[in-house]
Design a protein around this nucleic acid. Structure first.
Lengths: 190, 190
DNA sequence: AGGGCCATGTAATAGGTTACATGATTGC
DNA sequence: GCAATCATGTAACCTATTACATGGCCCT
């Protein structure tokens, strides 16, 4: 169960409310983990009951009050223990690939629109990630981040580069898929 | 719920038992969907009760008897309906990325071994996929599969190419991660 | 007046993992 | 004799999704 750990990491980077966490899971954390607010609130409640988090009621003006969570000592210990325990390399779960193989038993051409939609969505994500990189990591290309090597920043950046690499790979693959679908439509006609 | 659809696709490609499906999910289907035998048996039972599959008891010699499942008309209809319904582009769930960001609050160098293990596993997977490609799709590189354009084969191949692209991308990213971790270890020493 | 954002949650259901359980055959 | 492969399943638990629910503020 890595949601718990993802929350610990995010709250260590910066304390925040359930709502704020949900937003982070839509943005920065979104390129390696997703979670909805319902799930986040439930897990936050449990983690607080377990003593891994502490809550602070924050009164706000012009906005609803919020509960700001931060990591307690047992939470840090739990994260550390998890970090030192090996995990299994994960496998993909890709619905679209199931559809592509399923198209052999239906009309492959009918899938073109769907694949184009996914293609567009991944291009959008890539654009967002690249914009985020320019914003948060400007001028770190020259391979010499000799200034102040901040471990947290470096690690955030390498994870972001992973998200970018994933989107680029996916876009290239979807190009391949589209070419294949078009070939199948054009091929059996002669 | 794509497991149901993945099972339909796999059984349309070739009827088989729960055990055989579990093996396929470890191999060919494994590069886009995973499932354990427990889950598969449960879903097969439900799908048969719903009339989407038909079972045939097959008596065997030297082996336990098996139940061979194949797709019934309602199953094909259900698959077709799903294929025509848009699905949301998926997001990653990558535990290792959570660990990498978490390492900022622990010892980044301690993660090197773990990342190396994942690196090795992905190289193994890539080797298996490439071997499968050479075995099942020989001589299809020359960009001219003009022979008999079998939609099923073409689609299986493009999905396999996706698995290969994913592993290659992951390996390259893990190289980047390892370089970053080493840099962080070497950097803050002077 | 209506839509969007901030902010929190509950309830029902579906999906997935882990552990337990059995038993025959084949090959070393 | 022991491990691996073939073959099937149950039970308990944990995780995730979907739908429902509320309510104030800000902007157009």
């Amino acid at each position: 169960m890595a949601l718990e750990h993802a929350i610990l990491v995010s709250l260590l980077e910066k304390p925040g409310s359930g709502y704020e966490l949900a937003r982070r899971f839509e943005r920065s954390i979104g390129y390696f983990w997703t979670a909805t607010h319902q799930q986040i609130y439930r897990v936050l409640g449990r983690m607080e009951a377990d003593g891994r988090l502490i809550v602070r009621e924050v009164r706000q003006q012009g906005r609803p009050d919020k509960k700001e969570y931060s990591v307690a000592a047992p939470g840090r210990t739990a994260l550390s223990a998890w970090l030192h325990k090996p995990i299994e390399p994960e496998s993909l779960r890709h619905d679209l690939a199931v559809k592509i193989r399923g198209a052999a038993f239906d009309d492959p051409a009918a899938l073109i629109r769907e694949v184009e939609r996914h293609h567009q969505e991944h291009r959008d994500r890539l654009a967002r990630y690249l914009a985020g990189e320019r914003r948060d990591f400007p001028g770190s290309d020259p391979a010499a981040p000799s200034e102040t090597p901040d471990a947290g920043r470096e690690l955030q950046h390498v994870v972001l580069r992973g998200g970018i690499a994933f989107e680029r790979m996916t876009i290239a693959w979807l190009d391949d898929v589209l070419a294949t679908l078009h070939r199948l439509r054009a091929g059996p006609v002669p």
